[in-house]
Design a binder for these strands. Structure first.
Lengths: 166, 166
DNA sequence: CTACAATAGTCGGACATCAAAGTAAATGCA
DNA sequence: TGCATTTACTTTGATGTCCGACTATTGTAG
């Protein structure tokens, strides 16, 4: 982004700031803003769909990860890495899931710093129903056809780059 | 989503749940998850870039909106509509911006329920520098070429649908 | 073997978001 | 006119996220 470089968009000035002109181009700010808004929309739809189960999307994702794990359990640290959230967020989510009886905490006897989380039978039942609820609303993406989804996924994967493919 | 309908993805079962098989398809859940992750990545980059200005992206967006407004001021309710956030979030953001001397609150004399927010001179200066900081990191999208951005924006616009174009 | 460093998890604090409820003011209708 | 409704904003409380700091445990270098 050299200073003398020609900008890829048509700029306007307001309040002393160079802004991209709103003419249908897809400059960085518009794209970034769109992602933020769509995430906001999706998250609110998710949480609404999960409300009957007393779940949030954050906690749903933790349960989903556990159900996928080979041994049915994961150390909290691994959950944090997979979901790319801070350790404290994992502790928080697990705390609430344990309170609800959906997840068990089990200390690792070999490495006593570690704690495993695993789904309880109740947790598995709830996860099954919650998953169905999310699939029923098609994850809020019903307006997109298969090609759009494919395209969207491919582009977003580029941005995720460093993130390993789950 | 009829029950007997053929699924557009190759399902697997685990913990009693039908999950999409992870074979590179772009089924709803994978797409939704990608959006959530990318938003997470972008937000953390934004907040890091804005930290020197004691700003968060939420507050930056409020200021950005104000700088765009015709009269340089907006009622809080309009800000909430534009950003699609709860009135509480707007009150919260404005409170902090006022504390920092970046924004002024002005009661509307005509309709005394209303409160206008507007940038202070200091707010305008900070916004200018903060905007440059975000543009310098290219809003975290440097890995995408112009075509990708265009594509991404177009698909996301479909999802935003109801959302008016800023 | 000991001292230092790295790792796993938790705690406290800050910020953002939403929902529900409350206050005040404007609007609408009988 | 007058009272119910709507609108604008704020307050309170719950959730989730991050950062920084802390404890406990494990790993490592000398």
């Amino acid at each position: 982004m050299g200073d003398g470089e020609r900008l890829p968009f048509d700029p306007i000035e307001r309040a002393g700031i160079l802004w991209e002109k709103h003419v249908g181009d897809a400059s960085s700010m518009r794209v970034a803003t769109s992602i933020m808004r769509v995430q906001q929309l999706l998250l609110s739809e998710f949480d609404r769909a999960l409300k009957p189960f007393d779940l949030t999307f954050a906690r749903f994702e933790v349960m989903r990860l556990l159900s996928f794990s080979r041994e049915g359990r994961l150390p909290l640290s691994v959950i944090g890495q997979r979901l790319m959230v801070h350790p404290t967020s994992v502790t928080n989510a697990i705390d609430r899931l344990v309170s609800g009886g959906l997840v068990d905490r089990t200390p690792d006897e070999a490495d006593r710093r570690r704690v495993y989380a695993s789904l309880t039978p109740k947790g598995q039942k709830v996860l099954t129903r919650a998953t169905k609820a999310l699939m029923d609303i098609d994850f809020g993406l019903e307006v997109l056809d298969t090609a759009d989804r494919e395209q969207l996924f491919k582009v977003l994967r580029t941005v995720r780059a460093g993130d390993f493919e789950e």
